[in-house]
Amino acid sequence: MIFKYFERPVIVIGMHRSGTSMLAEALHHAGIHMGVHRDHNFEAMHFLSINQRAMWAAGADWDRPAVPDEGHFDTWSAKELYKIHFQIKNRFEYIFSRLADRPWGWKDPRNTFTLPHWLKVFPKARVVHLVRHGWDVALSLSRRNQVPGEVYSSMLDDPLNGFRLWNVYITQAMKYTNCQILHIRYEDLLEFDINTISRLEHFLERKLKIHLEKVLRKTLVRNVHYPIEIVENEWIKKFYPH
């Protein structure tokens, strides 16, 4: 199919501190263009800005999220978003880029709540939902609160609040059943689980293993003891049954 990638961007969703930055970096190295202008979390700045403004307009934010209404979003066409993403300056560059038909996409945890809008703009988008154990996410958020210059949310000093926020994100992500979506675990990528990587490669039609090996810089550390609220959580039981 010619020009298939224009209307099929890869949209990465998932809770903050769940490995989405690592995944986005691997996808970019694998040839899925994740944006010319990206921040240190590998988030395309224009999509991040649109998501953030929509959530603010809805009276929400990343740590108290909600699904914005359509009226809360800036009005951008698919063509305009594509041109900004690739920093296309003129008609010739646009025609050349469309003919090259480069795979592309973007990552932002806020996509978890703004996805209904993006699916209206790009109905054929492929969505990757990366899941990390909620308690590990909560502990990571609490530690990040202690890093000067990083995003800070006072409620996340308490890891239980971080876990509850994780539950809000994953509950929202699991509602998307009307789109092409793949749910994978961060821990499986860290352990180079062949089945998980094969599913991801098949889903994105792209070889990823060598690129994941380059960006995975952490080793998996498994917690043994969890508060009862974590053990009894429905999503923990679904994604981490053992």
Rank of each mutant, 00 (worst) to 15 (best):
K120L: 01
F239K: 13
Q180Y: 02
Y240L: 07
P116R: 01
N195F: 08
T112C: 09
K214L: 11
M155D: 14
G71H: 05
L115Y: 12
D158T: 10
W62E: 12
M45L: 15
F73P: 02
H29I: 01
T114G: 04
E70Y: 08
E229T: 00
Y186Q: 14
N167Y: 02
H72N: 13
F192E: 09
M45G: 04
S97C: 05
P9I: 00
S77E: 05
W118G: 00
V147G: 08
A78W: 10
H117S: 03
E7Y: 07
H202T: 08
Q146K: 15
V147T: 15
L81S: 08
I50Y: 09
F113S: 04
P123I: 08
V231G: 05
F122I: 01
D61Q: 12
I230C: 05
H46M: 12
H28A: 10
S142F: 14
A173R: 03
D193I: 04
P241M: 03
I11M: 02
Y226E: 03
T20A: 06
G35F: 02
G162E: 11
E213K: 13
T177L: 07
I95V: 03
I230F: 11
F6P: 10
A138N: 12
R64P: 00
A44S: 06
N161W: 13
I236T: 13
N195W: 00
W76F: 15
E232R: 13
K83V: 05
R110A: 07
H85T: 13
L141D: 01
T219M: 05
P241K: 11
Y240N: 06
L48F: 14
A78Y: 07
W118M: 06
T112K: 02
H183L: 00
G105P: 04
E7G: 03
S18Q: 14
L212G: 09
R110K: 10
V12R: 01
E232Y: 09
L27T: 00
M1V: 08
E201G: 10
L23S: 05
V10T: 12
M45C: 11
A24M: 02
Y152W: 14
H33C: 01
L220R: 09
F239R: 08
R102I: 07
E213M: 06
M155A: 15
E93L: 02
A100P: 02
L27C: 03
H129F: 11
H72A: 15
E191A: 05
M55E: 08
C179T: 15
Y186I: 11
H211C: 00
D157A: 11
P159E: 11
H33R: 12
D188A: 13
R98P: 04
F73R: 08
I230A: 09
